[in-house]
Every structure is written in structure tokens, then in C-alpha cells.
Design a protein around this nucleic acid. Structure first.
Lengths: 316, 316
DNA sequence: CTCTCCTTGACAATGCATGGACGACTGGTA
DNA sequence: TACCAGTCGTCCATGCATTGTCAAGGAGAG
């Protein structure tokens, strides 16, 4: 008889199999098992056949443990804590507002299919795939997690000889267009602070600058985007004309660090002293090691840059 | 086109043979039989000759069982549960599924400032605030968490007398425009399955339909959006002309359930039998209680609808 | 007669459990 | 800088449980 009267328990008393718990917590099945094997973090009951059955309480505990590890704590430590302690810990971590990022495992299949489209020189599909990802996950996640990984994978394939220059150009051009569209499609406030974005002379990679522009636009800045390979004097005059409250430059390759450094000094010298100059990108840190120019801030990630900008925009 | 050669089969159906149930649930005939043989999941009545005849209720039970197994549960376990328990389980699995983001800090400030802009009849700021939120958090989160809460808060304020009709119109119009822009800005695949979206005659709230269209477009459907208050005959002819693989209707108010029900029957009767008709929205469940029309699926949330659509798109 | 359906038994695929091993990353130390 | 030990997520091989599918033989429905 399938339809027996409901069980006396108030709540559903069935346990959750491991697949359901994995879906609900975002943790892989392997992690659920290994946390149990190594640390005894959660010990579920078993079916007669030996399969794990987790209670609702245990699912909550897994969520707390996952949150704790995302905030940088060791699983071997937090696995021994009681649920109450974990609750307090989660509340504390949340209020301390540690980086909210990287809580979603980025989707490898998306990156792989995008690379496959690039390999097939299928610009339309490449574009469609990534635009859809941006709409689904939002601009910040796209800029922080998706776009860099696509470019990195394409670089790897290029080094391995499976892709050639045209493939990389196709991917760069499409990605740049997508990010610029995102930047322009953010409605700007009428009284927004102005930010000037570019890459200095000698640096031809524009994607980093575009990403900075899009992130800043989302944060409420009015962004003026000059593109790549802009001479110092042009940057300075543009900053003056658009009344920039800050200038952000992006450096990726830094093929000639001393050349870049000279350009940065030139830009700094031509800007008003009150206008901060921020340099970011994966090549920025290499340049930063070689010189200390007062009035130039360096940062490695977009998130870092956003906090710098936030400080400037309230200060200004 | 005359689709159903047999009797009109309104509500008094004697029972469905196994082939019909297989087609309606997406489960194979073998599965329907083996779930009965091994676990007694569903026990249909038999014709004098021994053939199975399933009731509508049993079809719904099969859908619930299929949903549970798709979420990773063992059929041997869920087959023993009552319909009520399955119902709760399905709702739980849908809602508890790994939240779009791990945990959502109450984004109340965004909702409150949006409502404040609506109160000031500042359409530009209202629009800007929400577009920026959509770009930042992604379309799914916007549709699932932000837009409903804005509309709900505005409804509350309206009931409390702090807002009036023009405010609500402003908010609805702006939100509709934003969601439609999102729907149209998703690039569509050339070989996408076509989905027709509308609200039936007597239902003038278009936002739900637009949200459905945007969500489906993100999932790779080619969406044709007809707007609100569309007569049954127009829906049917549009479906034929755009070659729709499925039709989704949204119902929010359901001021006159019997009227809506008549329209739904009319739409169903004019559509080809193979084209599924899915009805969603907060008013859908109220209508669903009052009638059982074969060939119409009801769902309460967008996530639920997406799983229904996913099944259709792979089946088709 | 032909098609669908029924039953039973067997088979294959998937998923899970277990223990082990690998590799990426971190932090301390020479 | 190089090295080393510890941590931790992932992967693999093997075995078992679960579960979807298939085939064969027979019977009802049209």
C-alpha cells in the first residue's frame, strides 16, 4: 500500500542521501565523505545497504562547516566544534565581512566550451556563451572568475601549441567587446565621480582596463575609457578635460618594466596632485617591485582596486 | 489543426494507459512497471484484460517521484512515501537547492531605496538602481530574489496607504522594461527550441510572463513574448507560426478563476497535442486546485518551471 | 493479423563505499 | 632561495547495491 497515513513525526523523517546533500551544500560527494573519514565532522546513519543518510541538522552543519572553510579556517579545526560554536563563528565571519567571493566553484565546463569555440574560430558561439554567462552570474563574477580563466586557458593552449595567434586574437577581441558593452550598459548616476581608465604606452592589452572600467561603473563611477597604448600626455589631457577624480591604468604584459615605469612617472607628473593614480593588473606587481613612486597605488586584483576606489570616492 | 481524434476527454477520464503516462511523465514504460513491481510505488487499476489504467492523481505522483529521483533520492525510499510527503519533499528540494549564492545577506537596502525612488516618482533612479543590481547579481538572482521583493514591498506600502496607484504603475512599468531588456539581450542560439510566453485573457500582469521569458532565454530557449491579456486563439496561432516547442503562461491575479480556467482549456484545445502547456505564477496554483486539465502542467516558482522546461527540451 | 501490453528473469550501467595515493598549496626552516 | 612537512581537495581501483533496460513468450485490443 503506497499511501499509508503519514508518519507521526512532525517533520519529514527520511534522511537525505549524499547526492542531495551535495546539491544542497555545494560540497562535492568526496568532500562529504572525506570530512567524515578524516575528522568525523558529521556521522550519518546508514541504510541497510550501507548508504549514508543525513539529517536536516547535519545538512545545516555541513553548510556551517563550508562557510567556515570558505572564510579560510582549517577544516581539521572546525570539524571538532559543536553546532553552536559553528553558528557563532559563521555570524562573526559574516559580520567581519571577509571577502564574499570565491564561494561558488566556477564552472569549468563553461570555460572549456568557450575555449573549444575559440579553437573552432567560431566567434559567434564564443560570444554567445560568454554573454550568457555574464547575464547569469553577474558582472563581478564574470570579471573575477570567468574572463581571467578563459584567457588563462587560452594562453595554456597556445603554449601547448594547440592554438595559434588568430585564436587568441579572436578570443581577446570578443571578450573585450563583451566587457565594454557591460561597462557602457550600466546606467550612470548624474553626479557620479569621474574615473579615467586606460593602459599606458607600451601595453597593448586592453582587456584589463576594460574590466576595471566595468567594475568601476558598477560601483557608481562615471567611466571614461581610452583604450590601450595611450601616451602619458594624452592620458593627462584627457583627465583634465573630463574632470577625472581618479585615473586607473592596467598593465598585463609589462614586457619592458623600465619603459612602463618611465611612462608611469610621466603620467603621475602631469596629473594634478589630488588625483590618485592607481595601477592594477597581473603585470602591475612586477612593475611595483622595481619602483616606489609616491602618489601611485598598486593593486593585483579587481576587488582590491574596488576598495581603493571606494576610499577615494568618499574622500573626494 | 485537429489534434485529438478521440473524445474531448474533459475531466471525467476513465484512466490513462501506460503509453500516455509515459509520455506525460517523461518516464519509460519499463520504469513505470518496474517501480510498481519492485517498490509498489503506484498501483493502478486494471482493465478486465489486465492492462494498467492510471488516474490523474497517480500521474501526478509519478511526476513527484521522478522529481525526487532526479534530485538524487533513491526510488526505493521515496516510493514508500505518501503523496503529501512527496509534495513537501519536492518543494523542499527545489527551495533548499544550493542557494544561487551561498548565503544571501539581506539585500534590504536595495529594496528600500528602490521603493523610496518609486515613492518619489523618480523613474530614472528606480530604473538605474535595479538595472545595476541585475548587472551585479545576474539575471536569475534578480528574477528570484530582487524583483519579487520590490513588488511585494510596493504592494505592502500600497495597502498601508503610503503609496498610490501611480506609484505602482511606475514600478511595474520600469520593472517590466528591465526584464524585457534582459530577455532580449540574451543572445539566442540558432537552433534553439522555441518557447511562446504570454498571459491569457483576463490577466493583465505582464511581469511574471516577462520573467519566465528571461529565465527561459538564459536557459537557451528562443523566446517569443506576446505580452499580457492575449486571447486563446491568438496564442494558438502565434504558437503555430513561430513553431513553438512549448507554451508558458503566467497567472498572477486570477481574479476570476473560472474565466481563466475556460481560457486555459481553450488554449490547450487549440494547441497541438505534443506541445506542452505550462502555467505558472502565484495565481496558478489557485487555478490548478479547481481543475485538472490533461496536458497542462502547473508550477509555482520559476525554478520549478525551469526543470519542467529542461525536461521538455531534452525530450523534444 | 498486428500492435500494444503483461510478466518474468537477466543484464548493464550508474552510483555509492572504502582505502589509498597524488598533487596543489601553505607555512616554517635552513 | 630551496626544502620540507602538514593540510586538504580530488582522483582511482575495487566491490557491492541500486536501478534502468532489454528479451522472450504469451495474451488482449482493434
Amino acid at each position: 500500500m503506497p499511501n499509508r497515513p503519514s508518519a507521526p513525526e512532525g517533520h519529514l523523517s527520511v534522511g537525505h542521501p549524499i547526492a542531495v546533500v551535495a546539491e544542497r551544500t555545494g560540497l562535492s560527494r568526496d568532500v562529504l565523505r572525506v570530512w567524515e573519514r578524516r575528522y568525523g565532522a558529521v556521522e550519518p546513519v546508514r541504510t541497510p545497504g550501507g548508504q549514508r543518510l543525513y539529517s536536516d541538522q547535519q545538512v545545516r552543519r555541513f553548510r556551517l562547516l563550508a562557510s567556515a572553510t570558505r572564510h579560510g579556517r582549517n577544516i581539521s579545526v572546525v570539524a571538532r566544534m559543536t553546532d553552536d560554536e559553528l553558528e557563532r563563528l559563521a555570524a562573526e565571519d559574516e559580520s567581519e565581512r571577509l571577502p564574499p567571493l570565491a564561494q561558488r566553484p566556477p564552472d569549468d565546463s563553461l570555460v572549456e566550451t568557450s575555449v573549444a569555440h575559440a579553437r573552432a574560430l567560431d566567434a559567434v558561439s564564443f560570444d554567445r556563451e560568454l554573454r550568457r554567462a555574464m547575464a547569469r552570474d553577474g558582472v563581478p563574477i564574470f570579471l573575477d572568475l570567468i574572463a581571467p580563466r578563459v584567457m588563462q586557458r587560452i594562453g595554456e593552449e597556445w603554449h601547448a601549441g594547440r592554438l595559434s595567434i588568430p585564436h587568441e586574437h579572436l578570443a581577446s577581441a570578443a571578450l573585450l567587446a563583451i566587457i565594454l558593452d557591460a561597462m557602457r550598459s550600466v546606467p550612470r548616476e548624474p553626479d557620479a565621480s569621474q574615473l579615467l581608465v586606460a593602459t599606458p604606452s607600451g601595453e597593448r592589452h586592453a582587456i584589463g582596463a576594460a574590466a576595471v572600467g566595468a567594475a568601476a561603473a558598477l560601483d557608481g563611477w562615471g567611466v571614461t575609457y581610452l583604450g590601450a597604448d595611450v601616451p602619458a600626455s594624452d592620458i593627462a589631457t584627457a583627465a583634465a578635460e573630463c574632470g577625472a577624480h581618479a585615473v586607473a591604468l592596467s598593465i598585463v604584459r609589462a614586457e619592458d618594466p623600465t619603459e612602463i615605469a618611465r611612462n608611469l612617472r610621466a603620467v603621475r607628473a602631469r596629473l594634478p596632485a589630488l588625483v590618485p593614480l592607481i595601477v592594477g593588473g597581473s603585470g602591475a606587481m612586477r612593475v611595483a617591485e622595481n619602483l616606489e613612486i609616491p602618489g601611485i597605488s598598486f593593486c593585483g586584483t579587481i576587488a582590491e582596486l574596488q576598495t581603493l576606489l571606494a576610499r577615494e570616492s568618499v574622500a573626494g
